[in-house]
Design a protein around this nucleic acid. Structure first.
Lengths: 116, 116
DNA sequence: TTGATATTTTCATATTTATCGAATTATTGG
DNA sequence: CCAATAATTCGATAAATATGAAAATATCAA
């Protein structure tokens, strides 16, 4: 992941409404949520919501697809994974930052196959 | 980690010079680097560097200490770890984002001692 | 104390980002 | 086609961020 895209992704998440929207989309799963549903959930005017969703889309963190009259947004887990990978490699001294967190999660399996 | 601090941390890293400075500080380790050394390394005027270092400090990502005439900045690994923890919990569906990335890195050692 | 060094603060300016009503585009049912 | 629904784009404005020269602050060595 190039640092320009990383900066756009970080900037996209560095905003109250966008971070909240992205969290909702992560929770929602691949099915995603409609723009209107997000706007209502966050109590943000449609035009503002659209602006923020465009930022997240531009950063590659979410995808959009039309479904009838609605436009459904969904979190791009791969993009988020790439961002986490960049931060782990470049901003955490040899994964020291992650280790603490990961060790508290059920990731034993992923560590076991770390020799791949 | 509260979302307000998370947003400040993400915003602090979402800028070319600040991301580069933080990466240098992470590499430098606990010893840190002087403001002047960072400014020179990044070819940024002292006043601009100072501005950016203040942003990173305000976000809690780096610490500062005076050493003679220089002010030494150092990465706060705990803060970065907290940020990674927040993202893992809230923006990665049950750590799925991390698992993919981590498994492709030579993290066997960090995983082995994860029980510390 | 004086002078040199290291950094920050101040200040003006430029740029980017955020907000939201109103107008516009796209889709569907009747 | 027409009316209703769902989103986006436009446009004007406000607010936050970035930049860098110049002045102010802190430290040290002589």
């Amino acid at each position: 992941m190039e640092s320009d895209l990383v900066i756009r992704a970080l900037g996209a998440l560095a905003q109250e409404h966008r971070l909240a929207a992205f969290r909702l989309l992560v929770q929602a799963g691949p099915g995603g949520l409609a723009a209107g549903a997000l706007a209502e959930a966050l109590a943000v005017p449609p035009s503002s919501m659209s602006f923020h969703l465009a930022q997240l889309t531009n950063a590659g963190l979410i995808t959009q697809r039309r479904q009838s009259r609605s436009i459904i947004y969904a979190a791009d887990y791969t993009a988020m994974g790439d961002l986490m990978g960049y931060l782990t490699e470049n901003c955490c001294n040899g994964a020291a930052c992650v280790a603490d967190t990961v060790s508290t999660l059920p990731l034993a399996s992923s560590c076991a196959q770390a020799d791949v």
